[in-house]
Design a protein around this nucleic acid. Structure first.
Lengths: 146, 146
DNA sequence: ATAATAAAAGACCTTTTTGTCTTTTAATAG
DNA sequence: CTATTAAAAGACAAAAAGGTCTTTTATTAT
C-alpha cells in the first residue's frame, strides 16, 4: 500500500515520539535499529522530514530527534502526502487521469468508498495517537519492541 | 494504489472483453491506443497474461486477443495477484513483517478493515462485470471511449 | 580551545519498474 | 506455396525507488 519511504517515516516518527514521552531524544542509529530499517536510508528520510519541519533535530552530544510540542500534531495524511504524494487519496483505481462521479470508470463507485475510508483513517490518526497506542497496549512498532 | 502494469492489464482486458461482446478480436495496436497505454509495454503485459492462461490470442491475419468463454470469469483479485502479488491484501500498513490480530501494529485494526473492503471489491468484480458496466452506462474505459 | 559526538549534505550505487524496439514464429488468405 | 499479418520473444534502456557511504557542519562536555 504505502511505499518503503513512507513506512520507515511513520515507524521512525512514532518511535521518536515514544522516546520523547520518556524524555529522551533518540539518534539515527538507535531509531533505525529499533524500527528495523536501513540505517543510512532512515537518516536520509528523517533529514528530509526535519527540513520540512515535521520533526526537530539537535546535533552534537546529547543530540537526536524530537517533536516540538508547540507544533500541531502530525497526521498520517500530511506525512504520506509529503513522502509519496496524494495519488492514494485522489487517484483512479483504473489509472484514468479523468475519473469522477460525472465521468466514472467502471470501478469508480466502489473504489471511491475505499479511498474515502483510507482518507478518513489517515486523517484521524497521527504520530502521537499511534505512539500512545503502542505505549499502553498490545500494539507494537516492530516485533523486537514487544 | 495499483502499479502501472496492473492498471494496463485491467484496462486492456476489459477492452478486449468489450470488443469480444461485439464479436471482434482486437490487436495490440488497437488495444494500446484505446486504453491510452504504451504500445510495446502493453504487448509485453498481454503476452504474460496469455502465458498465464488468463486470456487467449491468435496470431496471423484476423488474429488478436479474446477470452475463452469456457473458462471461468477472471476476478480482479486473481489478475492483481498475478501482476503485482498479494501484498495489498495481506501486508501490514506499517510495513511490519509480523502483524496480525494477536500481534497488531498501532494501525492494524482500522487498516485491516480497509484491506478487507478492498479484498471484497476485487473478489467480487471481474473483467466481465466491468466490461458490462462500461457497455451499458456512464462508465468509461478511457476519456476517449465515451 | 579542543575532542568527541551526532546530524546534514551529497555523491554514488543497486534493484525494480516502466517503457522501447527488433527479430522470430505462427497463422491465414490468396 | 507464398506473401502478409499479427503475436511471441527477448534484448535493451530510461526512470524511479531503495539503499550505502563519506565528508562536512554544528553542538557540547571537558
Amino acid at each position: 500500500m504505502f511505499n518503503k519511504e513512507t513506512e520507515y517515516a511513520i515507524r521512525g516518527l512514532v518511535y521518536i515520539q515514544l522516546q520523547n514521552f520518556e524524555g529522551k531524544r533518540p539518534g539515527i542509529a538507535e531509531i533505525a535499529k529499533q524500527i528495523d530499517a536501513p540505517h543510512f536510508y532512515t537518516a536520509k528520510i528523517l533529514q528530509r522530514l526535519v527540513r520540512q519541519g515535521f520533526v526537530e533535530s539537535l546535533k552534537g552530544k546529547g543530540g537526536g530527534f524530537y517533536f516540538d510540542t508547540k507544533k500541531p500534531q502530525l497526521s498520517l495524511k500530511q506525512l504520506i502526502i509529503a513522502t509519496e504524494g496524494d495519488s492514494l487519496f485522489c487517484g483512479c483505481g483504473f489509472g484514468l487521469k479523468q475519473c469522477d462521479e460525472n465521468n466514472p470508470c467502471p470501478l469508480h463507485d466502489k473504489y471511491a468508498e475505499i479511498r474515502n475510508a483510507l482518507n478518513k483513517l489517515v486523517s484521524e490518526e497521527n504520530v502521537q495517537s499511534l505512539a500512545q497506542k503502542t505505549q499502553r497496549g498490545e500494539e507494537m512498532l516492530s516485533p523486537r519492541l514487544r
